[in-house]
Amino acid sequence: MSALATSVFDMPSYVQSSYVGLILTQLEVSLGATLAGLAIALPIGQFCSRLPRLYPPTLGLVTLIYSIPSIALFVLLIDYTGESETTVFIPLTLYTLAILVPGVVDGIRSVPRDVLDAADGMGYGRARRYLAVELPIALPTLMAAVRVAAVSSLSLMSIGATIGNYGGIGDLFLLGLRFFDNRLIWVGLITLLVLSVLCDIALRLVQRLLTPWARSLRSIG
């Protein structure tokens, strides 16, 4: 069994990285991009929910970015960031905005009006209300978007292979194609699927831990 496992997961020399190494790169870049996207989407979303008129154009913009082919973005970026993880990281981060910005706005909009009214009436300041009331109540909606963004980044990252071994597991697809090695493609595909599922499960767990109140809400509803 262990001999078989070794043979399946042993990488040919032209892969230039171990199997575990590929997985780590994959997770680092795609989850890192999701987190970076979240850090950008939170203020944008907050801004859009304060000024609802700005939301449609903002949503249009992030959707437009999402529609730019990643190859084109890589080529544009490569002049500035070279053949590096950063060149993969930036487009991935931008792509998550199309999912995370609406996630943040919907989350903040899911906070009932009377809850905000009560918070104001009891003397919450703006920042404190945001951190202690709005964000926690927005969390279930927000986390749903984060899960989609993370899984989509895991998959989108494969294209990074085209700029030279920055696609994580995705490298296996390109190399499998180039060296006529179907095993690499299968290993890559299954690994990516398993990673996506595990990642979603892990994020669901995080969500459950962060929102104990919503768990009992589901059990009732």
């Binding site: 009377d114 809850v115 009214d117 009560a118 918070a119 009891m122 003397g123 926690p136 109540i137 929102t211």
Partner: peptide, 29 residues
Amino acid sequence: AQLRRGIGYVIQHAGLFPHRTVAENIATV
């Protein structure tokens, strides 16, 4: 804020914080 913390406020649908327990809600102010 100081004024509001010194005035109790009750509204129609209670406006309780859904993410906080009953005891935590009451302890808000």
